[in-house]
């Protein structure tokens, strides 16, 4: 029989890094769980806050904890993030909380890739603005905003936990594509000065 625990999970690009005018790095794997159900219900609130310790986020917001997050994905969907090693425990907690079959918690850790963009705040915003049809000015996209959108040709979601750093999540199957377009947008000779 196969080993049920299996080998340690490997991220999509093995931690690829590109140093341009913004540093693009594949983030280490984190636990990600998609929660579906009525966001205004106490069952959803209890489930999401219990496993993260964060507050419920508002519409298009992300609520950031020490090493956990709750992101508002759509009117009936949340994404919770946590350290990889605690995913199984969180799923168990959620299974215990979500007694109503109209609520679901699905582990999407291995279906996602994550990237971190670091650099000067205006330049990090510029790299994202090159690829997504989103107004990335600090007024329109302040800290705590969360946006699901299109990154060139594929869906992605991102947020800025602090000035000069953006976190981005996409499907794992397009990780290579996303890394290459981000790297291309961040090439040293490509500064536009949009938010300078």
């Amino acid at each position: 029989m196969s080993d049920v625990t299996g080998p340690a999970p490997v991220s999509a690009l093995n931690g690829a890094v590109f140093d341009g005018y913004v540093r693009i790095a594949e983030a280490p794997m984190r636990g990600m769980i998609t929660l579906r159900g009525d966001l205004s219900s106490s069952m959803m609130r209890n489930g999401a806050t219990k496993v993260t310790g964060c507050d419920m986020p508002g519409q298009r917001q992300i609520s950031l904890g020490e090493d956990r997050v709750i992101a508002w994905m759509s009117p009936d969907e949340l994404l919770v993030g946590m350290p990889l090693s605690e995913t199984a425990e969180a799923l168990e907690t959620l299974a215990g909380t979500f007694t109503d079959p109209a609520f679901s918690a699905v582990d999407v850790t291995h279906a996602r890739a994550a990237f971190t963009l670091t650099g000067e705040d205006a330049l990090v915003r510029e790299v994202l603005a090159k690829l997504a049809p989103v107004d990335m000015s600090p007024e329109a996209f302040p800290e705590g905003s969360f946006r699901r959108t299109r990154l060139a040709q594929v869906p992605a979601a991102f947020w800025m936990p602090e000035p000069g750093r953006a976190e981005l999540v996409c499907f794992r199957s397009v990780a290579g594509y996303v890394f290459s377009i981000l790297s291309d947008a961040a090439r040293e000779d490509g500064i536009v000065g949009l938010y300078a």
């Binding site: 519409q59 298009r60 759509s74 009117p75 049809p133 989103v134 946006r147 959108t149 299109r150």
Partner: peptide, 12 residues
């Protein structure tokens, strides 16, 4: 009207 985003048509 579901999420309040104002975006151009390529996101839709």
């Amino acid at each position: 009207p579901n999420c309040g985003v104002i975006a151009e048509e390529t996101e839709f």
